[in-house]
Design a protein around this nucleic acid. Structure first.
Lengths: 338, 338
DNA sequence: ATGATTCATCGAAGCGCTTCGACGAAAGTG
DNA sequence: CACTTTCGTCGAAGCGCTTCGATGAATCAT
C-alpha cells in the first residue's frame, strides 16, 4: 500500500487519473514516491477495474494485395497514433475476418475498439460490428457508411488529379487498368471507387477512356496493353491501380516499338513512390497518404470512444501526385484531337 | 455464476484451462452452456488472476531502412504465429527503444514477453532486458547472444550461395555494396555480418572482391558503380544489400556502355523478389525468410515462456536464391582468369 | 469390511486497481 | 455564529477470473 507517501490507495488512484481533485502538495508527494520506487500502475488491474483496456485492435488484411507497403504504413501510422494517445495497438490477422471469429475476439473484452481495413462495399464484418454496437472505425468505407467513423482515399479527387495531369500534357485517350475483375465483383472499395471516379472524370473532361481489369502479374500487364491498343489504337496514356503489371506493360510497349514517356505515358495509382521509383523510367505515381490514414483510423476511433455523445467523423484524403519520368507531353497532341 | 450448467465457477475455470481433471460429462455440460450463451471468458480478468497476460509485444523498428516489405513480413509472420498459439501481439514502436521508455512499458505488466528486431551488435535494449531478466527473443542477434533466444538470417550461408552462384557463371571479380558506413559503424547486424561473410567467402573461394558502403539512394548507387570500376576494372558482378541503389547502378552501367547481365551481373541481397522483379531486368535476389523469421521470433519466445526450465533456442536461416534476369555467364570468363 | 487413495467438485480468498459513499475540515452565507 | 457548501481524503466494495485447501464420493489394497 501507499504508506510511502502517507496517502490511501484511492488517493493515489485519483492523483494518477485526475478523477477527483487532489491538493497540489499531496499530488507532488505521490509522484515523488512513485518514481522513487519506480512504480508503474498495473495496466491489467486498471483495465479490469475500470472496464476500459485502452487497447485497440487493427484488423489486418489477409494475403497479398499490392506490395504491402501501403498496408505496412497503415500499421506504422496507427501504432504511432495509438501510443501518442496512450493506447496500445494489437494486431488481429486475416483468418479471423469472419463474423464468428470476430465475435469470439471482441467478447474476450481485450480491446475497447477496432480499426478495420480492406473494406468491401458490403462487408460482413462491418455489418456484424454495427449490429453488435461494438466501437470501430474504418480505413476505407462500405456502400452505406452513415454513422460510421472512417477515413479513406478520396478516389474522385485522386482520379481527377491523374487525368488532369495527363490532359495537361495533351493526352486525350487514356486507359485505366483496374484490379482484377474478381476484386471488383467482390465490391473491393478501391477497385470500385477508382473505376467509377475514372469514368466520371473522363466524361466530364470530354476525353476518351477505356477501362480494363487485370490481375497483378507482369504477364497480365503485357496482355492488357495489347488488348488496350486494339480497343483504342489512339491510346497514349495509361493509369494503373496495380504496380505489379508495369514490367509487363513496359515490355509490351517496347515490343510495340514505342517508348515511355515519349509515346505512352504511365501513371501508377495508389502505390508507393518508394517502389515505383525503382522502375525504369521511374513512374509518375499517385501516392496514398498511408501513414496519415493509419493515424486517422486510430484517432477517429479514440474520438468516438472518448467523446460523450459519441462523435462520428468521416475524412477523405486524396493521393499526392508525384511526377516522375513516366509521363510526358503527348507525342501527337494534334492528331488525337482530330 | 454458472448455475446454467449446474457447476461452480471454479469448475468452469478448471474445465476451460484443463488445470484439474474434470469428468467428461461435466465438461460437456459446461461447453454446451458456454456456446449456448455465447460466453467467452474475460481475458483481462484471467490475466489479472493468473498473472499471465498471453500478450506479447513486438518492438518495432524506427524509420525506414530498405523498402519495408521485409519488416512488414516479420510483423505478419509474428502475428500469425501468436494467434496460432493463443497469444495476442501488440506493436511497440520506435521512439520507445530507449531503456527508460522500455522500462515503463514492461513495468505496466501488459505483456509476458518481447520480440525485439533490428538488433545492433551492442544493443542497449538487449542489455537492459537481460539485466532485468525480462523474457524476450530477438530477430537478429548481438555481439554476444549466449543464453538469448534468437532467430536470424544465416549471412554466411547466404553470401556463400550468392558468391557461388556468380562463380559458377564464371565471375571472378565481385563487388559487395553494403549499407551505409554509418549503419556499419553503429554495429547494425546485417551490415556487419554480411560484410564479414562476403570477405570470408571470397577469400576461401580464391576470388577477387571489392567492398563499398553506400547510402540507399539511386544517386549513391550511380557513384558507387563508378568508384567500383576504378577500384577494380575487371569487375563483372555486384551484390548489393540495398535495393534502392539499383536504379543508379543500372544507369551507371548503361552509361558505361555495358549491359546487364551480359557485361555485369547483379544480385540483390536480402530483399523481396516482389520488389526486385519490378526492375528491368528483374533482379536475381536473395530473398530473406521474413515470414518465417517473424514466426520464429514468436515461437522462440513462447517456448521460453512455457517450458519450465526455460529453453533457449537459436535458429539461423539462409536466404533463398531466386535466379532471375540480372545474372548471367561472365562475358570474359577467360580474360579475368589471366 | 476398513483405512488409505484417488477423483471430481466446491467455496473462499485474492490479483491490483477504480469508484462510490462518507466524513472531517476549511470556506462561504445570512 | 450556527448552517450549508465545497474540498481533499479515506475505507470498502467490487471488476471476472484463477487457485488453494477442503470435502464427499468412489476406488483400491489388505
Amino acid at each position: 500500500m501507499w504508506r510511502r507517501a502517507n496517502v490511501s490507495l484511492s488517493t493515489v488512484s485519483y492523483a494518477i487519473n485526475g478523477t477527483r481533485p487532489i491538493s497540489e502538495e499531496t499530488r507532488a508527494r505521490i509522484f515523488a514516491a512513485m518514481d522513487e520506487l519506480g512504480y508503474r500502475p498495473n495496466e491489467i488491474a486498471r483495465s479490469l477495474a475500470s472496464k476500459r483496456t485502452r487497447i485497440l485492435a487493427l484488423l489486418f488484411p489477409p494475403g497479398e494485395r499490392g506490395l504491402g507497403i501501403t498496408e505496412f504504413e497503415f500499421v506504422t501510422g496507427a501504432t504511432e497514433a495509438a501510443h501518442a494517445r496512450g493506447y496500445h495497438l494489437v494486431l488481429w490477422s486475416a483468418a479471423l475476418n469472419s463474423p464468428k471469429e470476430l465475435n469470439h475476439l471482441i467478447r474476450q473484452g481485450l480491446v475497447d475498439g477496432l480499426i478495420v481495413m480492406e473494406i468491401h462495399l458490403n462487408d460482413r464484418r462491418i455489418q456484424f460490428l454495427r449490429d453488435n454496437a461494438f466501437p470501430f472505425s474504418m480505413i476505407g468505407r462500405c456502400a452505406d457508411s452513415t454513422g460510421i467513423a472512417f477515413t479513406d482515399i478520396d478516389f474522385e479527387a485522386t482520379m481527377r488529379t491523374a487525368v488532369h495531369h495527363l490532359a495537361e500534357l495533351g493526352h486525350r485517350h487514356i486507359a485505366f487498368i483496374n484490379h482484377a475483375q474478381a476484386d471488383f465483383d467482390a465490391g473491393y472499395g478501391p477497385a470500385v471507387r477508382a473505376h467509377v471516379a475514372f469514368e466520371q472524370v473522363i466524361q466530364s473532361a470530354g476525353l476518351h477512356g477505356v477501362v480494363r481489369f487485370c490481375h497483378a502479374t507482369p504477364k497480365d500487364g503485357y496482355d492488357a496493353y495489347q488488348a488496350l491498343r486494339v480497343q483504342d489504337p489512339a491510346l497514349t496514356a495509361i493509369i494503373s491501380m496495380n504496380e505489379r503489371v508495369f514490367p509487363g506493360l513496359l515490355q509490351a510497349i517496347a515490343d510495340a516499338g514505342l517508348r515511355v514517356p515519349h509515346d505512352v505515358s504511365l501513371v501508377s495509382a495508389i502505390s508507393s513512390p518508394r517502389v515505383t521509383e525503382l522502375m525504369a523510367p521511374p513512374l509518375t505515381t499517385l501516392a496514398p497518404p498511408s501513414l496519415e490514414l493509419g493515424r486517422l483510423g486510430v484517432e477517429l476511433l479514440i474520438q468516438q470512444l472518448e467523446s460523450d455523445p459519441a462523435e462520428i467523423s468521416q475524412v477523405l484524403i486524396p493521393c499526392a501526385l508525384v511526377v516522375s519520368g513516366s509521363t510526358g507531353a503527348c507525342r501527337n497532341a494534334q492528331l488525337t484531337h482530330a
